[in-house]
């Protein structure tokens, strides 16, 4: 518990920033993939693909396990993506909603639960928040048929859980054996106490 209240070290800030920027760069081609899916298969499939935008709010808290990591990771990723995708400044507001929702989820668990189902839950919760607070008002979902509203929201949540929750676990776990995360809780919890 005491660890949670300590201020962030510079190393933690830099590692979260690096992860955030790397994810923001992956999001750039992902934007075009998302657009192509929307054009070819329709919005229901695109909302599944769009769930990947939650990964910044899941992977950094999984590594650092400190308050603020979800919000910061997602915001830095959005900042890195911003000049390279056509969406512009609005992606920071999207990042704020998505990262904030993931942060709330981890806060509710006391920053103690980081197994796969919890990561997927955090991502799905972020996807739900993004649907309700961003897509509903901006794309005016409220006047669509109720079936479309439910389908869009569920696809967003499922995509977030699988692509963002599962993807975060896959990438971060593959990084642990390289040893670069040895100073962080994700690697420390795997070492036997001496």
């Amino acid at each position: 518990m005491r660890r949670l209240l300590q201020p962030w070290t510079t190393a933690e800030i830099l590692v979260v920033a690096t992860m955030g920027i790397a994810i923001g760069l992956i999001w750039v081609p992902w934007t075009w993939f998302y657009q192509a899916t929307a054009a070819v298969l329709g919005p229901w499939a695109a909302h599944f693909v769009g769930g990947f935008w939650l990964i910044g709010g899941v992977i950094t808290p999984y590594i650092v396990r400190k308050p603020g990591a979800a919000l910061l990771g997602e915001l830095i990723a959005a900042l890195a993506e911003m000049p390279l995708t056509p969406w512009g400044a609005i992606v920071l507001i999207a990042g704020l909603i998505e990262g904030g929702a993931c942060e709330l989820f981890f806060l509710a668990t006391g920053y103690r639960r980081f197994s796969l189902p919890w990561l997927m839950g955090a991502a799905a919760f972020g996807g739900l928040a993004f649907s309700l607070l961003y897509l509903y008002p901006i794309q005016g979902w409220g006047r669509l048929a109720i079936e479309a509203q439910v389908l869009y929201t569920l696809m967003r949540m499922a995509g977030a859980a699988i692509l963002a929750g599962g993807g975060a676990k896959l990438i971060a776990d593959a990084l642990v054996p390289t040893g670069v995360l040895d100073a962080f809780p994700i690697a420390r919890e795997r070492r036997p106490e001496i």
Binding site: A11, L14, V15, T18, I171, L175
Partner: peptide
């Protein structure tokens, strides 16, 4: 990513 994280530290 690993080399990026190493350099970040």
């Amino acid at each position: 990513l690993a080399s990026g994280i190493r350099r970040a530290q």
